[in-house]
Amino acid sequence: MSEVMSAYIYNAGGGPEVIELIERPIPTVGSGEVLVKVEAFGLNRADVQQRKGVYPPPPGASDIPGLEVSGSIVAVGEDVTDWSIGTRVAALLAGGGYAQFVNVPAELLFRIPEGLSSVEAAALPEVCATVVSNLFIEGDLKSGETILIHGGAGGIGSMAIQLAKAAGARVLVTASSPEKLEYCLSLGADEGINYREDDFEARVKELTDGQGIDLILDVIGAKYLERNIRALAVEGRMVVIGLQGGTKAELNLGVLLGKRARIIATTLRSRPLSQKSEIVKQTVARVMPLVDAGKVSINVSKVFDFSHLTSAHEYFDSGEHTGKIVIEV
């Protein structure tokens, strides 16, 4: 095996033109880690935000982007007893995935089920861990409750629809076009709202007979804050996981108090290993049986070759995609 690998970094903040192919030494596997030969990796909005210069990697993380990979284990570090060389795995990362090899703490590995391709497996770790942590651990979604998922046609939204439905929730989504809403409905969403044509707050009141939403999964942030709060039901919760619509907005605390509502803001990437490990455990327990049973659609919308990573970012920036974009190494 060569001592060097190909990888991508961002040489500045900006558009896809800042993506640069480099050579790096293959990582050394440390205690408690495995070394994965990467076969595919997912492209996530966090990667794009990092490329733009607004979402830097957490302290200690690799400057190589990439938050999820699939591949096979080629080396095992000390104190790793549950994994062996040759095992096909997917992995959740804080960075380092845009490369031919990456070292991963053993606690953040997912065993790839038989019959699942590397491309499909690469689309699972980040979205599944994000959805499980925010819908069920933070948001405490229960059967019979109603959830509103903003950006339902994206990678996270696609998985959130399916896992919420599997948990017995009623699912409402927002999206930007009739085609994207049809896609969401095909995954199990009960109602779709075209945010370019309709006021989602007014539609929520109609669709819930004025009761409001028990849980909102929000990727927009400031732009939707006031309307989201008004759309919540009594004792409703809102989990903010993205800031596509800005970072600052006024909040009427009186409305929040009157509803006994909660706003929860989370990120996954910067959490300590102990928390990520618990999220991965719960994700494996909740999601993998559904994957094994064929009850989850993984929804890879487009696959790019490793040499065409810039094109993959351009496609992501176009806003045309639904589901996940995956790069095959």
Rank of each mutant, 00 (worst) to 15 (best):
P27F: 12
G152P: 06
L148M: 10
E78R: 13
G95F: 06
A90S: 14
E33D: 15
G236W: 09
I26N: 01
G95H: 06
M5A: 11
I9W: 04
V204I: 15
S158L: 05
L43P: 02
Y315F: 15
H150F: 02
R260K: 14
E179V: 11
D317Y: 06
Y195K: 05
N44K: 06
A129N: 13
R227D: 15
A40F: 07
R196V: 05
Q162R: 13
D79F: 08
G323L: 05
T267K: 02
G245P: 12
S177P: 11
G188P: 04
A61L: 13
L253R: 03
G157F: 06
Q100D: 07
V69S: 03
E179N: 10
E23L: 00
C128V: 10
K281R: 15
G144P: 12
S177D: 11
G115V: 10
S62T: 10
E78W: 00
P25I: 00
K52D: 01
I220H: 09
G86Y: 08
S274M: 04
Q211P: 00
E20A: 12
A153C: 07
E191P: 00
M238Q: 15
F110Q: 01
G86Q: 07
A233Y: 03
L256S: 04
E126N: 11
A40L: 06
V239K: 02
S177E: 10
L225N: 06
G221K: 04
L163Q: 05
Y55K: 07
V280N: 02
A94N: 13
S70T: 03
D317N: 15
A121W: 03
Q49F: 14
V38S: 01
R237A: 04
V34S: 03
A122G: 02
P113E: 10
Y183T: 04
L93Y: 10
E226M: 03
P56E: 10
G210Y: 06
A166H: 14
V48H: 08
E126G: 07
R111L: 05
I220Q: 10
Y195V: 03
S307Y: 06
G254E: 07
A46N: 11
S297C: 06
M238K: 07
D305P: 09
L181S: 10
Y195N: 05
E78V: 01
T283V: 09
V303K: 07
D82Q: 14
A46M: 12
I137G: 00
A164R: 12
A99T: 10
A122W: 01
G13W: 07
H321M: 13
V54L: 12
T174H: 08
L108A: 08
A285V: 00
L109Q: 05
A265M: 13
A202I: 09
A285R: 14
S72Y: 15
S318H: 11
E107I: 01
P16M: 12
Y98D: 02
I325K: 00
L43Q: 01
T28L: 14
L35Y: 03
R227M: 13
D47F: 07
S84H: 15
A189P: 04
V326S: 11
Y10P: 02
L290P: 01
E328G: 01
K142I: 00
R111C: 00
K248F: 05
D305M: 10
P105F: 08
A202V: 13
D82H: 08
L273K: 15
L135W: 03
L92N: 02
E114R: 12
G32M: 08
L93Q: 09
E107M: 05
E226H: 10
L172K: 02
A153D: 08
